[in-house]
Design a protein around this nucleic acid. Structure first.
Length: 500
RNA sequence: GCCGCGUUCGUCUAGGGGUCUAGGACGCCUCCCUUUCACGGAGGUAGCACGGGUUCGAAUCCCGUACGCGGUACCA
């Protein structure tokens, strides 16, 4: 191969890493690995107003948690640094000088207010989306309209200015997107994009093009929200005399209610939106990765489960779909359950033990936890559910699930009492699942009722819930004393006149 | 509004002119297993946005319409 693949994930450090950002990173990573290429992290910190101090760290941690290994980046070294845009100003300056010298960019001195006035004026005369473009720039204050001396005077007096791209009036820009095919734009629809802001920092468009070129990026794989600005980038490559990289614009991840999965929408719909949330909520990284990979891509066969390594093998851009993909939380949970069950009891025990320490579980006992892991692993969605569902192993139930109590009838208390009488004579050592089950069978036979009449109420008395781990092993684990106590407790709470 | 992109079961998708009476997965429903809760297993439910072409033949190609989404900032 003439030149090896180099791709980058280029987030802005404006907050926690968004789940959509993680998928973009993942696709870049899979593509790089598939081709034996290089995966680069570049921090696009050109917006000082939105800069968040800890964001970079969160991004890196989130990627690491997901299993994505960074080959080059601010903390990972590489021969194309620095990897933060705020540290690359000279590159941008050089590019701007060339654009200026060749008449493809110009100084603009208009204040925000003046631009606003222009927009209002144009709106009033029927232009719904006024832009600073090849037409309107003629009536603004810039190096195209001002006399040379005045431009120099303003610059000498350090008047604030921006550098704008001089977009040609009538040109057709075409490029081939690896996912969408040929995309065509007319330059008349483009505005004279600001390239260098008055604070001296570049905008995304300039920085992106310059860095992708300097870092020898071969493929730009990014979200569809960038498709509309791609022609501006093509123009820049052209003016700078550079060969543009291949482009691939990914379909967006959508909210179940429609529209881009924004922080706000996701919160309303109960979908965690930051990778951080998934880490904190004890999701399995393999599950998130597998799920995200399939959100907008598929290998083309009927397979659903793949490790990160397998995904690297399978991933190709031509199998990425074009339409937006709605985030399906239940499917994620399904993936999570799958990977959870693949974990060994020991590994889970260690994980959940750590969690329990943070959560302050009343009556917590590590030995008990160890015993209940195998009982609960098969019936929870997430690792931390184990503590929730198994909470009754540590302390008496506080209340009884209303749904489960629907099966509670007038004869239930007597059945419970009968069962209690049957197991009370058992010694602690005899308090085994087998014996407890046998006792229950005898009890229902003697009372001439079905087993179900007793099992569910028993479960409720002991755990407060209508669902949960296998009943008899649970009773055994709980032990004689606690079981008898809880039966009494439930009887007094549920069979009295004020029972609920 | 304008520009761009998109549209196969509720959702993620397979499908790239005949093999599609459209396949898989999640969800949901039923049954089996379990006289419990689950896991697991077996079934079922449900879809080519619409209208025109092209063609012997269209989910697949073309055009239009509708709808959705993105962009339209000195934010990325």
């Amino acid at each position: 191969m003439a030149s090896s693949v180099r791709v980058r994930f280029a987030p802005s450090p404006t907050g926690f890493l968004h789940i959509g950002g993680l998928r973009t990173a993942l696709y870049n990573y899979l593509f790089a690995r598939h081709h034996g290429g290089t995966f680069i992290l570049r921090i696009e910190d050109t917006d000082q107003a939105r800069f968040v101090e800890d964001a970079e760290q969160d991004i890196i941690r989130s990627l690491e948690w997901s299993g994505i290994r960074i080959d080059e980046g601010p903390l990972h070294g590489g021969n194309y640094g620095p990897y933060r845009q705020s540290e690359r100003k000279t590159f941008y300056q050089k590019a701007v000088e060339k654009l200026l010298a060749e008449g493809n960019a110009y100084y603009a001195f208009d204040t925000q207010e003046e631009i606003e006035v222009m927009r209002e004026r144009l709106k009033a005369s029927g232009n719904p989306s006024p832009a600073y473009d090849s037409i309107t720039r003629q009536s603004m204050k810039n190096s195209l309209t001002l006399p040379q001396e005045e431009v120099e005077r303003r610059l000498a007096e350090r008047e604030p200015y921006v550098i704008r791209l001089k977009v040609p009036r009538r040109e057709t820009i075409q490029f081939e997107d690896l996912i969408r095919g040929v995309v065509t734009f007319e330059t008349k629809g483009l505005d004279d994009q600001v390239l260098l802001k008055s604070d001296g920092l570049p905008t995304y468009h300039l920085a992106n093009v310059v860095d992708d070129h300097e870092m020898e990026i071969t493929h730009v794989i990014r979200g569809e929200e960038w498709l509309s600005s791609a022609p501006k980038h093509i123009l820049l490559y052209q003016y700078l005399g550079w060969k543009p990289p291949q482009m691939a614009h990914l379909p967006l991840i959508m909210s179940p209610s429609g529209g881009k999965l924004s922080k706000r929408k996701a919160e309303i719909e109960g979908i965690p939106v930051n990778t951080r949330d998934y880490i904190d909520q004890e999701y399995e990284p393999e599950a998130l990765v597998n799920f995200l990979a399939y959100l907008g891509w598929s290998p083309g066969d009927d397979s659903e489960i793949h490790s990160l390594d397998e995904l690297c093998q399978l991933f190709t851009l031509d199998r990425v779909s074009k339409g937006g993909a709605v985030f399906n939380h239940k499917k994620l949970l399904w993936y999570n359950e799958h990977y959870l069950r693949e974990k060994s009891d020991d590994e889970l025990y260690t994980r959940v033990l750590g969690l329990a320490a943070e959560k302050q579980i009343p009556g917590f006992d590590a030995e008990v936890l160890k015993n209940i892991i195998p009982l609960l692993k098969e019936r929870v969605s997430k690792a931390d559910d184990i503590l929730e569902m198994g909470g009754f192993f540590f302390s008496d139930p506080e209340h009884y699930d209303a749904e489960a109590l629907k099966k509670w009838s007038d004869e239930t208390p007597d059945l419970i009492r009968a069962y209690k009488a049957a197991i009370e004579p058992l010694h602690e050592a005899e308090f085994s699942a087998d014996k407890l089950k046998a006792s229950l069978e005898e009890t229902v036979a003697a009372q001439n009722v079905g087993m179900g009449k007793l099992m569910m109420p028993l479960r409720v008395c002991v755990s407060g819930q209508g669902f949960g781990p296998d009943l008899f092993p649970s009773l055994e684990l709980l032990g004689r004393e606690k079981v008898l106590h809880r039966l009494d407790l439930a009887l007094s709470r549920l069979s009295g006149p004020g029972a609920s």
